[in-house]
Nucleic acid binder design. Structure first.
Length: 860
RNA sequence: GCGGGUGUGGCGGAAUGGUAGACGCUGCGGACUUAAAAUCCGUUGACCGUAUGGUCGUGGGGGUUCAAGUCCCCCCUCCCGCACCA
């Protein structure tokens, strides 16, 4: 049944149906096989999939298929990170219920994923917004609450004074509410937090074991945790005042610069500031001003360094001078003690501030190559190494010695202690939103905060909610929050906040192991079989928060007695984004690629009226800029194997990929080329199972070498997730096989072996074409179930090597010589080369470096 | 602002400190065709040279080394994250 043309639509849908009907990718625990758990970060169900979403799932799919062929029991699940803001926005804007919107989107996206031919076990599909899922995390939360891992505290939120709503940082644009347009205010609310800081050291130390994580992700988490040693000390207030305190507690990581201190700075949110503001209107105004901006660290750090003199002064512990105390907007209450001493010479923020308010700048750390009297600070603080000067008893010491000395003296004087501080803050999990998991506690006037009893879980969301009223829909609901206290039975109120959606994504990988369990979140045995995740694949944007929260959650569950291991993700791979050119019409409105026509001279016009189109920057594919290419249209025109091929071949996987029309056409051409080459080979192929000949001609040996080298290299590339390189090797192999097919003296059995190997090697990447051609050759089994080929090392090593000969590091000749000749012989062969002689000329050879089978470098 | 990354022909990219540009796209030349498309073959970093060959060349500047795209220092670009987007 040979078809002339590759009918991609029929072939792809045929195999997709076959895989689904035969449950090819459904798995159960099987102790006789080694397990392999591949996980792609699950998506938020936002609507239709576009090719930008595809990259993540394509990569995890290759791994799943490759590992399955390599004999592993592979689990590759999928689900929906289904709670979140966009569903509520859709409810407000289009008057559609978040639940309906979410499930409809998930439905559409599942269909798109099935169209991609992913090797997913759909029997394990989960949606985090279903009570069957969130019931269990409510239980986890209550365990955390009972063990003290969850607690309530006052935390800052962005408050929109017009809409009377808490805003997400994303909803704050230039310090103003995205809808109201008025400046947001910072407000404190009583909210739930999880004690991730209890695990700060453990999370930090755990990073060292994560050898299969990218270094940059580990570095980012390390910096995020931000462990630093320093000094916590108090300064005594000078003079008299009415304050109830006589010291100010500060934290510094640079105690060595104490003699360069020129002022003290306290946070606008420091208790002392609050106290002073009561009687000082200037401070009160300044604090109010500081509160008229978002809560994000970025907004705070980017703001101009400003402050107000409190009029207070403190005594320097070792110098006969006093330091002014300022309230400064760059001091964060969340870090250290919310107060610092400022040494402008060695800290840029302090310097900016000192220049603005005319304060002293005294350098106390002098670089080794500078003299104290010549060393001045202009507008750049010096943060490098050096030796202490202008510092009394510290003079001459290096920074480390000076730190130790100061800490020792302050400790002995009883004015402070050397301490360790972390940048990491506890995880605030309360959200004033509807579309999230209800926090299962009850507030009772008499009993305080009371957990919802286990047998009343899950606390489910009401469906009749009004999104037209500002504020939290749950708090606004007329009856939902009313209940009776489980302890005393009196009238009480439900917590109306819901969980941060990172809560759901912190344990979904566990739920996949046992997705239908109604009794508990998961069965311990099943989790112990599948976990940890062997290969996690997702975007670099999750490098810190999601991945750190999940690592913490796993530990918290272990501490609560649910798990036996610390780290959830054994290996991590972060893939790059898919980008596309952007287009705007004459009115400056975004246009989709399908709405324009590109001409060969590089200009573009509007498909409808032919008006000129401005071609903009290449940016991440996103609905908002309309630079998306739909899955359906690609499937229709080129098939999904083409899309998969383009995604894998055109960029290294960790870097961005630009989606282009010419790229997808190139991939499509190659799919057809493979189809033609194998289904219409010039050589008549023998039956499958025909033995390879014992005696090989030179060209037979050569092609066998190429085939085995391809097996070796491609397996290695797939192990390392270097998909773009494996595609290049696939092309090399197919080029060679095409040549061999054209060779009249070829051996058909070897050609068949070459084709079979080629199909196996490219099948993880182009699975539909792979199955079709595998069947075409006469195989009855699936190629995905066929045993992955093994390279025969005897074909990999050739007798001769080509080595480079350099003279003074410049290439002068390349010479063939026998493999592994001794150094003297290699030198002689190299020196005999006329071009090498010419380059040496009259000069004396001083040295010859020989790297066996690689290079000879003649130094003259 | 802070933390992390990135940069190589016209384009996407390849390269355990050891022959820079594998593999592809585009372009150019050719075959096939009445013609075109598709397909197949050859060629394609820049400059000089008829040629054997030579010079330059991996964001910019400096350094280490027999040898640097790769290691070190400084700078620039764009991208990711910054705790309530997911």
């Amino acid at each position: 049944m040979i078809e002339e043309r590759y009918n991609v639509k029929n072939v792809e849908s045929k195999w997709q149906e076959f895989w689904a009907e035969n449950k090819t990718f459904e798995v159960l625990e099987d102790k006789s096989k080694e397990k392999y758990y591949v996980l792609a970060m699950f998506p938020y169900p936002s609507g239709q999939l576009h090719v930008g979403h595809m990259r993540n799932y394509t990569m995890s799919d290759i791994v799943a298929r490759y590992k399955k062929s390599s004999g592993y029991n592979v689990m590759n699940p999928m689900g929906w990170d289904a709670f979140g803001l966009p569903a509520e926005n859709a409810a407000i804007e289009n008057n559609i219920h978040p639940e309906k919107w979410t499930y409809e989107n998930a439905e559409a996206m599942r269909k798109d994923m099935q169209l991609m031919g992913l090797a997913i076990d759909w029997s394990r599909e989960i949606a985090t917004c279903s009570p069957e899922y969130y019931k269990h995390e409510q239980k986890f939360f209550l365990d955390f609450f009972k063990s003290g891992l969850a607690y309530q505290k006052e935390s800052w939120v962005n408050w929109d004074p017009v809409e009377n709503t808490v805003l997400a940082n994303e909803q704050v644009v230039d310090g103003c509410g995205w809808r109201s347009g008025v400046p947001v205010e910072r407000r404190k609310l009583n909210q739930w937090s999880l004690k991730i800081t209890d695990f700060a050291d453990d999370l930090l130390e755990g990073l060292e074991q994560l050898e299969n994580w990218p270094d940059r992700v580990r570095t980012m988490q390390d910096n995020w945790i931000g462990k630093s040693k320093g000094l916590q000390m108090h300064f005594y207030l000078a003079g008299s005042n009415d304050l109830p305190i006589d010291t100010i507690e500060i934290f510094t990581t640079r105690p060595d610069t104490l003699f360069g201190a020129s002022f003290l700075a306290i946070s606008p949110d420091h208790p002392l500031t609050t106290e002073l503001a009561k009687s000082n209107s200037e401070i009160a105004d300044f604090v109010a001003d500081c509160h008229r901006q978002g809560t994000s660290e970025e907004a705070l750090e980017k703001a101009e360094k400003r402050g107000v003199d409190t009029g207070l002064e403190v005594k320097h512990p070792f110098m006969d001078k006093t330091l002014k105390v300022f309230v400064a907007n760059f001091v964060l209450m969340d870090y250290g003690t919310g107060a610092v001493f400022a040494c402008p010479a060695h800290d840029q923020r302090d310097l900016d501030f000192a220049r603005k308010y005319g304060l002293d700048v005294v350098p106390v750390v002098i670089p080794e190559d500078k003299k104290t009297e010549d060393f001045t600070i202009e507008n750049e603080a010096y943060t490098g190494d050096g030796f202490l000067q202008n510092s009394d008893f510290l003079n001459g010491m290096d920074i480390e010695a000076a730190k130790a000395n100061i800490i020792d003296r302050i400790e002995k004087a009883g004015d402070g202690t050397g301490t360790t501080t972390y940048r990491l803050r506890d995880w605030g999990i309360s959200r004033q939103r509807y579309w999230g998991c209800p926090i299962p506690v009850i507030h009772c006037d008499a009993c305080g905060t009371v957990p919802v009893p286990d047998d009343e879980l899950p606390v489910t969301l009401p469906t009749d909610v009004d999104f037209s009223i500002a504020g939290s829909p749950l708090a606004n609901h007329p009856t939902w929050k009313n209940c009776s206290c489980p302890k005393c039975g009196k009238d009480a109120l439900r917590e109306t906040d819901t969980f941060d959606t990172f809560f759901e994504s912190s344990w979904y990988y566990l739920r996949y192991c046992d997705p239908k369990n109604t009794e508990s979140g998961f069965d311990r045995e099943k989790v112990n079989y599948w976990c940890p995740v062997d290969q996690y694949v997702g975007g670099i944007e999750h490098a810190v928060m999601h991945l750190l929260y999940a690592r913490f959650f796993n530990r918290a569950l272990k501490k609560s007695g649910y798990l036996d291991f610390d780290e959830p993700f054994e290996s991590l791979f972060t893939q790059g984004m898919v980008t596309h050119e952007t287009y705007k019409d004459k009115n400056g409105k975004w246009l989709a690629p399908s709405q324009i026509i590109l001409s060969s001279n590089g200009s573009a016009t509007n498909k409808i009226d032919g008006s000129p189109v401005t071609i903009g920057r290449i940016e991440k594919m996103s609905k908002s800029k309309k630079n998306v290419v739909g899955l359906q249209e690609v499937s229709e025109n080129y098939g999904m194997d083409s899309a998969r091929l383009l995604i894998l071949s055109d960029s290294p996987p960790e870097r961005d990929l630009e989606w282009t029309e010419s790229g997808i056409e190139g991939a499509w051409k190659y799919i057809n080329r493979l189809w033609r080459m194998i289904s219409q080979s010039k050589t008549k192929l023998p039956e499958i199972g025909t033995a390879l000949p014992d005696i090989l001609s030179d060209s037979d040996k050569a092609i066998m070498g190429v085939i085995h080298k391809a097996i070796h290299d491609i397996s290695e590339d797939l192990d390392r997730l270097h998909f773009n390189r494996s595609v290049a090797r696939i092309r090399e192999l197919s080029n060679s096989l095409s040549d061999y097919d054209n060779d009249k003296d070829n051996n058909p059995a070897i050609l068949l072996f070459g084709f079979e190997t080629l199909i196996q090697l490219f099948s993880p990447m182009m699975p539909h074409l792979g199955e079709e051609l595998w069947q075409h050759l006469g195989h009855k089994n699936l190629v995905v179930n066929a045993v992955w080929p093994k390279a025969d090392k005897s074909f990999l090593v050739s007798d001769s090597v080509t080595i480079a000969v350099q003279v003074n590091g410049k290439l002068r000749a390349t010479i063939n010589m026998p493999r592994d000749v001794d150094k003297d012989k290699a030198e002689n062969i190299a020196l005999d080369e006329p071009n090498v002689q010419k380059a040496i000329g009259e000069k004396t050879v001083r040295r010859i470096i020989v790297v066996p089978n690689r290079i000879v470098n003649v130094v003259i």
